[in-house]
Design a protein around this nucleic acid. Structure first.
Length: 571
DNA sequence: GCCGTTTTCGGCCCGACTGTTTTCAGTCG
């Protein structure tokens, strides 16, 4: 049972309780527990086996018992009982913007609606008009909401959201006047997937700014428009814009960056210290006097904390760490000296070894690992043992010509039966990856990893969980399970920085560096020179997992990496 | 349901926007 499954179970309880109008605090308790478990840096089963469930903040007697039952039996009788009289379609209705738990429950109780489709039909037939608090505007709002619900279909990847927001910011700079503008929200925190985009503007004259925003071309729908904030639907995504007074810029940036859980913790801390924190500043409760607000640093400092990097603001214990003065100095893009995973024309890459080396040099790297696919992958014409010397020679040749250290890597295939294609003493950086038989059962997959880790001792395991963001769930293994094997056999997990993978994820990184104290290797898996620039996505995820410079092997100099590889090859 | 450098009971983050039930509840982030 994975942490995510347990967290989902608790979130489901929260949703049912919400629909039934239970106490908001009870609901929040379940949500809080779910968040904590989703962010846990070790498998929840381990914690449970040690009898330490109750040590997790937010988990008390009742929730601990439900987790234990779920781990033992795979179900939760409490959830089954309370969900019995709630049609499954109501949870879908909650996804429609404008429909919350109260309305969903009323629509079911008073009209008998049990799905988004039934709701749509009822709206078209104007059957809801007589209901208390239900006018023509509400009808339109919900029909719009259903259209958006169909278009949204989940979250979009960070690298796709970035250009949308950049374009909007450029448009705003040309068409409105203000003091400052910046992205906030999950975008600023570097989340790999974005639900909606938050943009913050500093101005003491908000109305024209809001007007410019809602009248942008490409706006499909204005979902909210007030004096200081507005929301629009554009490019298949919701974009929220908030205008704040210049003197509140820091407080607003902090508030609008989130995460929600981080902000709640921060406001609780403020209350304990006799303050009130909102998007306008930090205020002394007794006098209502503003004590901070111009910059984020000012606010954190007034609360007795160092500034916390946005990538860490997920309520994974970073506030406690900051209170103790133990915030880790996060790895930075400037620390990166090379890329562990690149492909060339020797397999399915677009550019030659020489061109990739030139790109690495242009990016200011000291070294680059060329790691083409080995043979054994049906769809790709990989490097064969017969061609290996030609491959090595080409790499050495480019190394001389470009004047940058190149390492000979090879991305070998872990076949369906756990054989490995292929290793050779000339390969300095063997990367073992699963590309085929992805649908195997968990134990089978783990056996394949175990066999190759034990027999071949690859340096790195490539894209360990096989996930493709928004497209494919991945292998039936969790990062936690692969990391456990990595720890056992001394294999380094890759943080694959390809925008569609980001595998291992941020929680996996957190687990690797805080629990196992093992380093990670960032590889872009670039199939052309442009994709090598995705390395920053890997650094963002590493930062989200609290990785320091010394946790990331990409920060080694060419000499240090050479030394590490030499040690490794000794018997 | 959880939790306690004020509390084992009584709190639990904060504000904007919307529609409509003219004083506020529901939704959202």
């Amino acid at each position: 049972m994975t942490n995510l499954e347990v967290a989902n179970m608790l979130n489901q309880i929260a949703s049912v309780l919400e629909i039934k109008g239970e106490s908001i605090f009870k609901i929040r308790a379940y949500q809080e527990a779910a968040t904590r478990i989703g962010n846990l840096s070790e498998p929840i089963e381990e914690v449970w086996r040690r009898g330490e469930l109750r040590n997790i903040p937010g988990i008390g007697e009742s929730i601990a018992a439900k987790i234990e039952e779920y781990l033992l039996t795979g179900k939760c009788s409490y959830l089954e009982e309370i969900a019995r009289d709630v049609p499954a379609g109501l949870f879908q209705m909650l996804e429609v913007p404008g429909i919350g738990p109260k309305l969903a429950w009323r629509l079911y109780q008073e009209v008998g609606l049990t799905s988004v489709e039934e709701l749509e039909q009822a709206l078209h037939e104007h059957r809801l008009l007589g209901l208390r608090g239900f006018g023509a505007k509400m009808e339109k709002k919900l029909l719009d909401g259903i259209r958006m619900y169909r278009q949204m279909s989940g979250r979009i990847p960070l690298y796709m959201a970035l250009p949308i927001v950049t374009r909007i910011i450029q448009y705003m700079k040309r068409n409105a006047s203000f003091v400052d503008i910046a992205p906030a929200g999950s975008l600023r925190r570097g989340r790999p997937d974005i639900g909606d985009c938050d943009i913050l503007v500093a101005s003491d004259d908000p109305i024209p700014v809001i007007e410019a925003f809602v009248s942008m071309p490409d706006v499909q729908q204005v979902t909210a428009k007030g004096d200081t904030k507005a929301s629009v639907f554009t490019g298949g995504i919701q974009v929220d814009l908030r205008v704040v007074p210049v003197e509140s810029w820091g407080a607003a940036l902090q508030y609008f960056t989130g995460s929600k859980a981080h902000n709640i913790k921060l406001r609780e801390l403020a209350i304990k210290k006799g303050y009130k924190l909102n998007e306008y500043g930090l205020f002394e409760v007794a006098t209502d006097k503003k004590v901070a607000g111009r910059s984020e640093e000012e606010i954190y400092a007034a609360l007795g904390l160092p500034w916390i990097p946005p990538m860490m603001r997920e309520d994974r214990g970073e506030i406690e760490l900051a209170m103790n003065g133990e915030l880790p100095p996060l790895v930075q893009m400037e620390d990166i000296k090379g890329d562990f995973h690149t492909h060339t024309t020797f397999s399915d890459g677009i550019n030659t070894v020489y061109e990739m080396a030139e790109k690495a040099k242009a990016m200011g790297y000291e070294w680059l690992v060329i790691s083409d696919h080995a043979t054994g992958l049906g769809v790709v014409d990989g490097v064969t043992p017969e061609r290996l010397q030609e491959y090595v020679d080409a790499i050495r040749d480019a190394e001389r010509k470009v004047g940058i250290k190149l390492f000979v890597g090879l991305e070998g295939n872990i076949m369906a039966d756990g054989t490995y294609l292929f290793d050779d003493p000339r390969i300095e950086v063997p990367i073992a990856s699963i590309h085929t038989a992805l649908g195997q059962e968990k134990e089978k997959i783990l056996d394949r990893y175990r066999k190759v880790f034990g027999e071949v001792r690859p340096l790195i395991v490539g894209h360990p969980t096989g996930r493709l963001l928004g497209r494919r769930e991945g292998l039936k293994v969790t990062a936690a399970e692969v990391l456990q094997l990595c720890n056992e056999y001394g294999v380094i997990p890759e943080l694959n920085a390809s925008p569609e993978r980001l595998d291992i994820d941020d929680v996996g990184v957190l687990m690797a560096v805080t629990q196992y104290r093992m380093p990670i290797a960032i590889g872009t898996d670039a199939h052309d020179t442009a994709q090598m620039e995705h390395l920053y996505l890997g650094v963002l995820q590493a930062q989200r997992g609290w990785a320091r410079k010394e946790d990331v092997l990409n920060t080694l100099s060419a000499d240090e990496l050479t030394e590490l590889l030499a040690k490794r090859r000794k018997p």
